[in-house]
Write a protein that binds this DNA or RNA. Sequence first.
DNA 1: TAGCTTAATGCAACAATGTTGCAAAAGTAA
DNA 2: TTACTTTTGCAACATTGTTGCATTAAGCTA
Lengths: 125, 125
Amino acid sequence: MKSVRNTTAKTEIQELIANSPVALSHTEIQSATNGLCDRVTIYRILERLTVEGLIHKVVNVDGVVKYAGCHSCSEKHNHNHIHFSCQKCKSVTCLEDVEPSYKLPKKYTVSEMNFTLSGLCPQCS
Amino acid sequence: MKSVRNTTAKTEIQELIANSPVALSHTEIQSATNGLCDRVTIYRILERLTVEGLIHKVVNVDGVVKYAGCHSCSEKHNHNHIHFSCQKCKSVTCLEDVEPSYKLPKKYTVSEMNFTLSGLCPQCS
DNA sequence: TAGCTTAATGCAACAATGTTGCAAAAGTAA
DNA sequence: TTACTTTTGCAACATTGTTGCATTAAGCTA
Ligand SMILES: [Mn+2]
Ligand SMILES: [Mn+2]
Ligand SMILES: [Zn+2]
Ligand SMILES: [Zn+2]
């Protein structure tokens, strides 16, 4: 039986992501927590929070990996929203209300989606 | 005036990508060309082909960068199709016919899109 | 064809990001 | 507190991509 332990670093990183209006990268988290723990530990905490369904990973169009809080992912991740990536301020935002629609022609089996739009966010327009 | 030179390596890599049914990563290109040129040269050729509008970059959901041929991008890139990423065979395919629709809050200015679905491709279903 | 200009290449060195193994530290239940 | 197990720190490594610079070679012209 593998139990989950709530450590200081894990709690702090989870709250940091949950309270952030934009998705955060590993580097941004490391800067924000300022020596709270080792950088390897941050990677492992992010992995654990993702598995637990508390945060989700967002791979930006420029390849930068960021993390954002989940709102209703208890058992497994179920995201069908769009992400917006600002080309000016580099922010990545979850647009939870925006559900894209599409129609696949062939015999593809879809299990996940990752839709990202880039341009200028409201602050940078 | 900066002119463009067609070298053996550039031509071969462009044809490799153009004739491939799936998007190719830098590593896959390096393996396929088998010592044709240095790995740095491959990066620079991919950059050049992208600027020239002959290929386009696809950042997969797992962060792996791949390249696929462009069909009608002379002046600048204009892609509005979906990419499909197979979780089993790891292939990334351009679904040129599939155009997703969505409605954004009007405060956002969109200039690019990157939509990727993952699951099982027809061969792996 | 030979020579000239400069785009393209090879190579080394570096940077950023992420992973793994293992011993030490810390969380949790008894 | 003790015992058990998860979590952490650290070092070492892997992958991917970038940069500077000397050398090579593509394409133009005579
Ligand atoms: Mn999101
Ligand atoms: Mn494509
Ligand atoms: Zn912005
Ligand atoms: Zn497949």
